[in-house]
């Protein structure tokens, strides 16, 4: 069993867990969970503290799944979209932009530049699973193209070589980071 292969058993487990999450969600989690990112302890390392580009917080100010009408797995039947799934606005989505509102509009607007589910969630301050649901909705409506990564990539020698060559080309020092937005 190799990690990149489709794993329906995991998918099933995740669906179940996601449903459980939805059931457990009704009380806002921010009352029990510190609003600081859980890993903020890392910023006290001797290293130059690396702060997230933007503060996290807006997402936990509302019940996340209100945005999705309580749905946790979108309309799809498959496993949740992998976090690196690339999302791109379609021409249809672009022309529909004016008719969309709130998060849906934000997502379609942001995806004029292709980006991953994870990037989208981070930049729009939405929960990962909320983005998954909304992205699947918008895909079904024809507003977004959703490019689910091919699981065979993990074993693709040519891809691995490209990644290795690309990493080797990373300079010894990054200097100052570009802004992410």
């Amino acid at each position: 069993m190799v990690a990149g292969e489709p794993v329906p058993h995991n998918a099933a487990a995740r669906e179940r867990t996601a449903e459980d999450s939805a059931r457990d969600v009704p009380e806002p989690t921010e009352s029990e969970v510190p609003t600081e990112p859980v890993e903020s302890a890392e910023s006290v390392e001797p290293a130059e503290p690396v702060e997230p580009a933007e503060p996290v917080g807006r997402a936990s100010a509302i019940r996340p799944f209100l945005l999705t009408a309580g749905r946790v797995a979108g309309s799809g039947t498959g496993p949740p979209l992998p976090v690196e799934t690339q999302i791109v606005t379609t021409p249809d989505g672009l022309s529909a932009l004016r008719s969309l509102t709130f998060e849906r509009r934000d997502i379609v607007a942001a995806c004029r530049r292709p980006q991953s589910v994870a990037e989208l969630a981070a930049r729009l301050h939405l929960h990962l699973n909320v983005v998954r649901v909304l992205a699947e909705d918008l895909r079904a409506a024809g507003h977004l193209a959703v490019h689910v990564p091919n699981t065979g990539t993990v074993h693709d020698i040519s891809v691995l070589r490209r990644v290795i060559d690309g990493l080797r080309a990373v300079p010894d020092s990054r200097g100052s980071l570009r802004d992410s937005s």
Binding site: V50, E119, R174, L177
Partner: peptide, 29 residues
């Protein structure tokens, strides 16, 4: 926690590390 994951990501990423939040249920097979 605190072992340097974010530091490592930040040291090599071309963007400042982004943070995303996800809801998880505390069960793990």
């Amino acid at each position: 926690f605190g072992v340097g994951k974010t530091t490592a990501v930040g040291a090599i990423s071309e963007i400042r590390p982004l943070t995303t939040e996800a809801l998880i249920t505390e069960v793990a097979a």
